[in-house]
């Protein structure tokens, strides 16, 4: 659990973080989203004390971060950034092993952990361990960056626009990886982005920031359906709030019993936006819903998309 208690950070006269309070639960995937200069990155970096605060307090599991020696605090918190920052003179394996080495893990444990992470981030089978970072693609580099951040099994992971510089396909794959890792490890993740679609896709809860303040904190659906002010509506909804809402809701939540063996199929975990796209593609107003194994669970009608269920 991370508590930010009336945190203020000033640069000269201007407060880039302005009396901000927030509580992030343990195991949560929390996304901070906002325009450039809103203070979201600064806020993230106050948690591992890369930036000091002028007022207020930050507590992790009840303990003030300023009471913990800064090096050991940071070694317990994973940190991934947009520019990745891999060490160019170290191999991929050495890069990933950075924090475990700082913590003095035995060599065998480090090797086992590196192999585990390589598998977790789908870097296995590509023989990357002994290569140097410049020999990797941008997507692979960021996978290594995330693996390095996760290496010492941190309870908290801070991610600062980690996928901002990647092409859409690679970003999509990495977003899936992060969701899978989060589900698998239960690590608390604080994720900063300026991309609202990314925020809506990843966030269990989203904090929308502007000018050093939180405009609203809530689940994606809450932000879409119940914006606290016009600014939130403009940020979250964008040009087509209706479609955005379809993108955060899952087929599973609205499917109904029925048989439609000849209808096109859709995954139960797909978003309603994907379901709509499938209907449009096939010119069909009904879809067969199946699970990952292919078993039919029910059907989805076009009218179901219009219902304002959660």
């Amino acid at each position: 659990m991370i508590e930010l208690d009336h945190v203020t950070r000033r640069y000269g006269e201007t407060a880039v973080i302005d009396d901000l309070s927030l509580r992030i639960e343990g195991g949560e995937l929390f996304v901070l989203v906002g325009p450039s200069g809103s203070g979201k990155s600064t806020l993230l970096r106050t948690i591992n004390r890369l930036i000091s605060i002028d007022d207020g307090a930050i507590r992790i599991d009840g303990r003030d971060v300023r009471e913990v020696p800064v090096a050991s605090l940071r070694r317990g918190i994973g940190y991934a950034i947009q520019s990745v920052g891999l060490f160019p003179h170290r191999t991929v394996a050495e890069n990933i092993a950075t924090v475990p080495r700082l913590l003095g893990w035995p060599a065998a444990r480090i090797r086992a952990r590196v192999d585990e992470l390589i598998a977790m981030l789908q870097l296995d089978g590509e023989n990357v361990l002994d290569r140097y970072p410049h020999a990797l693609s941008g997507g692979q580099q960021q996978r290594v960056g995330v693996a390095r951040a996760l290496a010492a099994e941190p309870a908290i992971m801070l991610m600062d626009e980690p996928f901002g510089a990647l092409d859409p396909l690679t970003r999509d794959a990495l977003q899936s990886s992060i969701q899978a890792i989060h589900a698998q490890t239960g690590t608390t993740i604080v994720f900063v982005t300026h991309d609202m679609d990314e925020a809506l896709r990843l966030g269990e809860r989203i904090g929308l920031m502007e000018s050093g303040r939180l405009l609203q904190v809530g689940t994606p659906l809450e932000l879409l359906r119940d914006p606290a002010c016009e600014r939130v509506r403009a940020f979250v909804g964008g040009e087509n709030p209706g479609l955005r809402e379809l993108s955060v809701r899952r087929v599973r939540s609205v499917l109904r019993d029925g048989e439609a063996s000849s209808a096109p199929a859709v995954d139960a975990d797909a978003t309603l936006q994907q379901a709509l796209a499938t209907m449009l593609e096939h010119g069909s107003d009904v879809l067969r819903v199946r699970d990952a194994k292919g078993t039919t669970l029910g059907v989805l009608h076009l009218t179901d998309l219009l219902a304002r269920k959660p």
Binding site: L50, A71, R74, I81, S83, G85, F87, P88, R148
Partner: peptide
Amino acid sequence: VPRDAVEAARGMGMTRWQ
């Protein structure tokens, strides 16, 4: 020296000497 490498090193908990 790439700034992001230094930033990442600090963020991971290396001391200034490290």
